[in-house]
Amino acid sequence: MISSHTVITVVRNFMFNIFSTSSIFSIINKLIKFFSSLIFIALAVGLTFALLISPPDYIQKDSVRIMYVHVPSAWLSLATFSIMTLFFILNFVFKIKNLQLINYSIAPIGLLFTCLAIITGAAWGKPTWGTWWAWDARLTSMLALLFFYVLIILSLKFISPVERSLKLATLFSIIGSINIPIIKYSVDWWNTLHQPASIKFTGTSTIHSSFLVPLFLMLLVFLIFSALIFLMKYKTEIIKMKKKGLNKYD
């Protein structure tokens, strides 16, 4: 008979061990080497598919290629925010120092992808819709996501002491995370200029497979890229923390 308390203790010990900085430090360097050797091959393959092999769309023509940057960055900006919020909540409840360092490294990546999604969206919107920007539900909620990222990064950077800045960032991330399902379903709930999702979790996708291969290859490139950026930033954050002598768990 295993009581709930033992389960929680085991889980907590596991979390502390896996996130303990000293054990993770040597792994980071190996992972950085691995990903940096991988990224150029992936990028070359991804770009070949996106720019050369992929057919143009029957009506958008070649501007469909913008989608190969736009969609992965939009997905990653949402995924990053969700993960960040989860870590902020876990850090708030269990006070796991390492999650805080992970979030310092995650937040700028999310901001980068949000900006990228909005800029490429505008570049696609001009030739397709006839306008750079429209205040429809999808675009506006995406802009709100950008503001939440900025708020979180600013509060992490400029508010002191650390405890207060973390509390503020946690608050912003929870409020901002309500926006995530709104972004996802805005195109279904309301009339928007932005088209509904072409790739669906259930039912048939309305995008031809010849567009899907380059799309998922570019997603892979973006994933490797963000992993690389994350690891580099995370390493810096660990070094910073060790220098400050604030490490409580080692």
Binding site: Y58, W129, G130, Q195, P196, T206, I207, H208, F211
Partner: peptide
């Protein structure tokens, strides 16, 4: 403004 639908076809 032109609205694009969710269909992507070669």
């Amino acid at each position: 403004l032109a609205k694009h639908d969710e269909n992507y076809i070669p």
